[in-house]
């Protein structure tokens, strides 16, 4: 097998809340290989988000090692971490985290604006292509508040893929969405994954975890189970099985 794209060892994260110390992660070891689709699940408060934020270089661990695509993330400066996130990572959040009063297209362009080596016309073309890939080409000029939750999350996915990342990290991306939309979103992730992008997904819904290829279960800041998904579901097939959307949903 090739080298892991993400590798953490003895990862510990504690939060100091006045007198109390909260142990969010109590020694996590995890290796993720290129093109894997990993679902991290577990009860609320078990440390899933904390782990994702560290893997996404948004937060730093209290102790432990982290290698991302061969680079030791714990040795990097703030700005180097920013560059790393920009070039290698894509993020999708439960609350979409789009810039309001900024069009869908401009939201997708955002990661490319922080690169100096891409021309404005190329930025526009690439963002437009990504919007088209998530089926929102004709909504390019719409603002987030003019889009449904599912559409907003698709814009966020387009933004996460616009810079050709090696890993996409999604923390409860379907948490605010209905079943059909959730499955559509999982379809997008499966599509990206087949193109070779590693996908890390946090979810507390077992149904959603079924769309991944590997399931990591976290409990109390530790990994308690790590298995390949027994019967990985295909989002495309599941969508066909669903009853056709009602008239209200279509409108």
């Amino acid at each position: 097998m090739s080298n892991p794209i993400l590798s953490v060892k003895s990862l510990v994260k504690t939060y100091q809340m006045g007198e109390m110390t909260v142990h969010a992660l109590r020694g996590v070891d995890l290796e993720v290989y290129p093109s894997e689709f990993v679902a991290i699940s577990g009860p609320s408060g078990s440390g899933k988000s904390t782990l994702m934020n560290i893997l996404g270089c948004l937060d730093v661990p209290t102790s432990g090692q982290y290698l991302l695509d061969g680079e030791a993330a714990q040795n990097l400066t703030r700005d180097d971490l920013s560059r790393l996130r920009n070039r290698k990572l894509g993020f999708v959040f439960q609350s979409f985290n789009l810039l309001s009063r900024t069009t869908a297209l401009e939201n997708v362009e955002l990661p490319l604006l922080y690169r100096r080596d891409v021309s404005p016309s190329e930025i526009r073309d690439r963002a437009m292509a990504c919007l088209a890939a998530v089926g929102l080409a004709e909504r390019a000029g719409h603002y987030p508040n003019q889009l449904s939750g599912g559409q907003q999350q698709r814009v966020a996915i387009a933004r996460s893929m616009v810079n050709d990342p090696v890993v996409i990290l999604a923390d409860e991306p379907t948490g605010n969405l209905d079943t059909r939309t959730s499955i559509e979103i999982m379809g997008l992730f499966q599509g990206l994954n087949t193109k070779g992008i590693t996908v890390l997904l946090v979810t507390h819904e077992p149904d959603i975890a079924q769309f991944s290829g590997r399931q990591v279960i976290v409990r109390d800041g530790k990994i308690v189970r790590d298995i390949p998904t027994p019967n990985q579901l295909s989002a495309r097939e599941e969508l066909i099985k669903l009853p056709p959307p009602s008239v209200e949903e279509l409108i």
Partner: peptide, 16 residues
């Protein structure tokens, strides 16, 4: 603050 967080997440440098 949230906007700043989003910008930092997608790769804005402190300078930006």
């Amino acid at each position: 603050t949230r906007e700043i967080g989003i910008r930092l997440a997608v790769g804005a440098l402190g300078r930006d």
